[in-house]
Design a protein around this nucleic acid. Structure first.
Ligand SMILES: [Mn+2]
Ligand SMILES: [Mn+2]
Ligand SMILES: [Zn+2]
Ligand SMILES: [Zn+2]
Lengths: 160, 160
DNA sequence: AACCATTCTGTAATCATTATAAATTAGGTA
DNA sequence: TACCTAATTTATAATGATTACAGAATGGTT
């Protein structure tokens, strides 16, 4: 993560106020590499600022994510756990717009870790996910629909 | 997924009863490749069996997963969303026992899809996760603790 | 047909997260 | 410095997915 000073000035840039709560959350996050949950951030931060609200932690993490200073660990279970009828190891191609998942049933050469990279882990399996936009979601109408607009079909080819 | 008959006999093997509810859920799943959520399975199945309980669908999906006939799509957010202080694309090494996540900051050659494999998707990014057991979790004491046992230190070296 | 362990069902509980609205405050202005 | 006000924090309620529970129903066996 960036340095505290960089982060603080970035918040100012965007017109966000520097509050003690935001400051203590950022100070915790700056040197954190454990991919904590909101609850874990709350626990740590509330030992320094006992009266901070859990809601503020949740909200701040969401704001930082919106600003791109933080990222939720990618997962495909946005709207609840999804079940896979294919139980052999395989990979996925995922549409970020409509959440369609397609299976990729082949191995990728070179997708393995060196002993140093594995850092003592006993590797059991690995899994790749490709993020993209499916053909259906690439059409202007789909883009509009995803954004919550109503589409006027007559307007589609009227740019000339 | 396996054929209905294979699945049914497998349930019998394990001493599970073949009920109309389980049958209709399996019949839906056999030809399903969309990675549905429990709610989606419920919606489809309840159009054929309107009085089926949502709970039964949830329970059956969990049972089938326990039996290995079905698999939840892998994700690292088992105990809530986790935040990543590194926002550049990178990969992960994940301990399936203690849920520790380590970053892998390098690219893997050959980790890309052919045009046919991409099936019209506009690929935006990709991400790999390596599943394993971290050094801490490989010790007998850790294995026991994870399983919920209490460890007697004197018992550890007494196999001779 | 009778039995009973298994399964199903409806409801309540739980857990993570978000919405809401009232109270507080950061940061600029006079 | 005192004041102003939009931004922020907070507590609480609401939501949504999932699980626990306990009683009713049932399939598979005798
Ligand atoms: Mn799959
Ligand atoms: Mn990471
Ligand atoms: Zn799509
Ligand atoms: Zn571990």
């Amino acid at each position: 993560m960036k340095s505290i000073d960089t982060l603080l000035s970035r918040l100012r840039q965007r017109g966000l106020r520097i509050t003690p709560q935001r400051r203590v959350i950022l100070e915790f996050l700056v040197n954190e590499e454990s991919h904590p949950t909101a609850e874990q951030v709350y626990q740590r931060v509330s030992s320094l600022m006992p009266d901070i609200s859990r809601t503020t932690v949740y909200n701040t993490l969401r704001e930082l994510s919106d600003l791109g200073e933080l990222a939720p660990v990618q997962d495909l279970s946005q709207d609840g756990r999804r079940y896979d009828t294919s139980t052999e190891p395989h990979h996925h191609l995922y549409c970020v717009a409509c959440h369609t998942i397609i299976d990729i049933h082949r191995d990728f050469e070179g997708m393995s870790l060196s002993p140093e990279e594995a850092s003592g882990y006993q590797i059991l399996s690995h899994q790749a996910t490709f993020y993209g936009i499916c053909p259906d979601c690439q059409s202007p109408a789909s883009v509009a629909t995803q954004a919550g607009w109503t589409v006027d079909p007559d307007a589609l080819n009227s740019e000339t």
